[in-house]
């Protein structure tokens, strides 16, 4: 029937509208090359699908922790002594900054506080070492991540961390993160909240 077809067309148009797809109108800017995208595309999601090939273990990480001078700022045992954030639980000096999310065993140590191990990999890869950010190879980042997970009793010393195993690591705070609700224009943050 004609009106049904009309309804179908209307609903498809509606979907297209919500998809925000439309033709370019200004023609300013250019397409990045695949190499340009690859060089900058460093964000790792909890799925780990963006992780590069490579692997590492806690033993290799322990050697790197010394060789890359991590200990100079984070302390030999991962205890900061007030200079750089604490990396290994139980060794931290009392933190004056309150935990933003619920702490794990009263600890704000990032390596176990984050709900997914991918966050640790991502952060070491993008932000460490201070002053030489981005200089670590994927194998080195896998090894250092494995070292921190082992020292915090999350994995065993001989567990190999790679693009498949890392996202599967069950972090102590895995259930410590409810996603924020869908955001809508003109709505309060939480219905019923004063």
């Amino acid at each position: 029937m004609a009106w049904r077809r009309l309804l179908l067309v209307a609903s498809i148009l509606g979907i297209c509208q919500t998809a925000w797809s439309q033709s370019p109108t200004f023609g300013v800017g250019r397409a990045p090359t695949a190499e340009e995208i690859r060089a900058w595309d460093i964000a790792i999601s909890p799925t780990g699908k963006e992780l590069p090939p490579g692997q590492g273990t806690a033993k290799e990480g322990a050697a790197l922790y010394v060789r890359k001078a991590c200990a100079a700022c984070h302390g030999v045992k991962g205890s900061s002594g007030g200079h750089a954030p604490t990396l290994i639980k139980g060794s931290e000096v009392p933190n004056t900054v309150p935990c933003l999310s619920p702490c794990v065993n009263d600890s704000n140590v990032m390596a176990i506080h984050s709900p997914y191990a991918t966050v640790i990999w991502d952060y070491i890869n993008r932000g460490m070492p201070l002053g030489k950010e981005g200089s670590l190879t994927p194998n080195e980042v896998y090894s250092l991540t494995a070292f921190l997970l082992f020292k915090n009793d999350v994995i065993k010393e001989d567990e190999v961390m790679d693009a498949q195993s890392l996202p599967k690591v069950k972090m102590p705070n895995r259930d410590g993160a409810a996603l924020p609700p869908e955001w809508k224009h003109g709505e309060p943050r939480l219905q019923g909240y004063p």
Partner: peptide
């Protein structure tokens, strides 16, 4: 998806009401 970046994860909470 929500990417749970380093700057994201400290801001969310196990309680959906708090995350909101």
């Amino acid at each position: 998806r929500f990417y749970m970046t380093y700057d994201d994860y400290g801001h969310i909470n196990p309680d959906p009401k708090a995350s909101a």
